[in-house]
C-alpha cells in the first residue's frame, strides 16, 4: 500500500510540475470558456428567452443568467473530468519514452501496483483540478444567479467523480498501448479537440443531425454531461415551474439543452444514465486489468 501511495504521489507531482502537460489538459475547458464569453452565452440566452417569449412568459434576468451559467458550469465540468484525466494519464506513455518506466520495473514493485498508480494518480489529479474548477464555477453561479440546493451541489460532485472515474478508466485503456511521445500527443490533441463536441459540451446534442445524435448516444460520456446539466439546472427548472410554466414548455427547454436524452426516441432516465456510466467505468477498468495481465504474462514467458 505504501508503495502504491509513493508511486501515486510521484505521478501526481509530475503532472502538476510538468507545465506543458498541465496546461495542455486545460485547453478544452479554456476553449469552452472563450466560446461562452464570445458568443455561446448569447446564443443560449436568446434561445432560452425565445422559448419563453413564445408562450408569453417573462422571467427575471437573474434566472436567465442562472440558466446560461448552469450550462457553462456543467459543460466545463463535463469536459474537464475527461480531458484532464486523459492528459494526466499520458504519464504512463511519457515514462516509457523517458525510460523511467524501465527504472520502475527494475524494482520489486508489482506490475499491478504500477498500473494502479497511474490510474489512481490520474483520478486524483483530475479530481483536484475539477473540484477547484467546481468551486470557481459555484462562485460564478453565486454571482450571476444561484438556484442550487445542497443536494444539487452534492449531486454535481458525485457526477464529477463518476465522470472522472470514467475518463480515468477510458484513458487508461487508450493510453496503455502507446509508447511514443508522438502517439501520446496525437491522443491528447484528438481528445482535447474532439471531446467537447462529442459529449455535447460545446453545442447541445439536440442541435446535431439525427444520425450523429444516434451515434453520440452510444458514448457513455454523453450521459455524464446530461447528469451534470440536470443537476446544475435543477434549481433553475424548479424556479421556472414555480412561475407556472407548462410541462410541455419545460420539456422543450430540457430537450433543447440535453437534460433529456433520447436513445432512439426512448427517454433515458437519470437512473439509467448513472447505470451506463458505472457499467462503462467497470468495463474499461476490466479491460485495463486484462491488458496489464496480458503484458505481464508476455514479459514472464
Amino acid at each position: 500500500m505504501r508503495r502504491l501511495w509513493a508511486l501515486t504521489r510521484r505521478n501526481i507531482k509530475l503532472y502538476f510540475k510538468d507545465k506543458g502537460m498541465f496546461f495542455t489538459s486545460l485547453i478544452t475547458p479554456v476553449i469552452l470558456l472563450v466560446l461562452y464569453i464570445t458568443f455561446l452565452s448569447n446564443v443560449y440566452e436568446d434561445i432560452f428567452l425565445g422559448m419563453l417569449s413564445g408562450v408569453g412568459i417573462t422571467v427575471p434576468d437573474k434566472l436567465v443568467q442562472g440558466c446560461v451559467g448552469g450550462q457553462l458550469v456543467s459543460s466545463i465540468l463535463a469536459v474537464s473530468s475527461v480531458t484532464v484525466a486523459f492528459c494526466s494519464n499520458l504519464l504512463m506513455v511519457q515514462d516509457k519514452v523517458t525510460g523511467a518506466r524501465r527504472d520502475l520495473t527494475m524494482t520489486p514493485v508489482n506490475s499491478t501496483v504500477l498500473a494502479l498508480s497511474y490510474s489512481l494518480a490520474a483520478f486524483l489529479s483530475t479530481i483536484i483540478v475539477c473540484l477547484i474548477a467546481a468551486v470557481i464555477c459555484m462562485i460564478y453561479l453565486a454571482a450571476v444567479g444561484w438556484y442550487l440546493t445542497a443536494a444539487d451541489v452534492l449531486a454535481l460532485i458525485l457526477d464529477v467523480i463518476l465522470l472522472t472515474l470514467f475518463g480515468t478508466a477510458l484513458s487508461s485503456v487508450v493510453n496503455f498501448p502507446l509508447s511514443t511521445s508522438g502517439q501520446g500527443s496525437a491522443v491528447g490533441t484528438i481528445i482535447s479537440a474532439g471531446y467537447g463536441f462529442l459529449c455535447g459540451a460545446y453545442m447541445p446534442i439536440s442541435s446535431f443531425s439525427d444520425g450523429l445524435r444516434n451515434v453520440i448516444m452510444f458514448l457513455p460520456g454523453t450521459y455524464g454531461t446530461s447528469l451534470l446539466r440536470n443537476h446544475a439546472l435543477s434549481g433553475v427548472f424548479a424556479e421556472l415551474e414555480s412561475l407556472g410554466i407548462s410541462t410541455e414548455v419545460m420539456t422543450g427547454i430540457r430537450d433543447s439543452i440535453d437534460c433529456n436524452l433520447y436513445f432512439f426516441d426512448n427517454n433515458v432516465s437519470q437512473g439509467v444514465m448513472y447505470l451506463v456510466l458505472v457499467v462503462a467505468i467497470l468495463l474499461c477498468a476490466g479491460i485495463y486489468a486484462l491488458m496489464n495481465a496480458a503484458a505481464a504474462r508476455k514479459r514472464i514467458k
Partner: peptide, 29 residues
C-alpha cells in the same frame, strides 16, 4: 542496482523526491 547509460530519473522532480519515490519501491521509508 542499475546505472543506465542515460539518466532515467524524473527531471521535473527534485533529487530528494526522486530518491524518496524510488526508495519506497524497495520498502525503504
Amino acid at each position: 542496482g542499475v546505472v543506465f547509460q542515460n539518466s532515467v530519473l524524473d527531471k521535473d522532480l527534485t533529487v530528494l523526491d526522486n530518491l524518496r519515490s524510488r526508495a519506497a519501491l524497495y520498502g525503504i521509508y
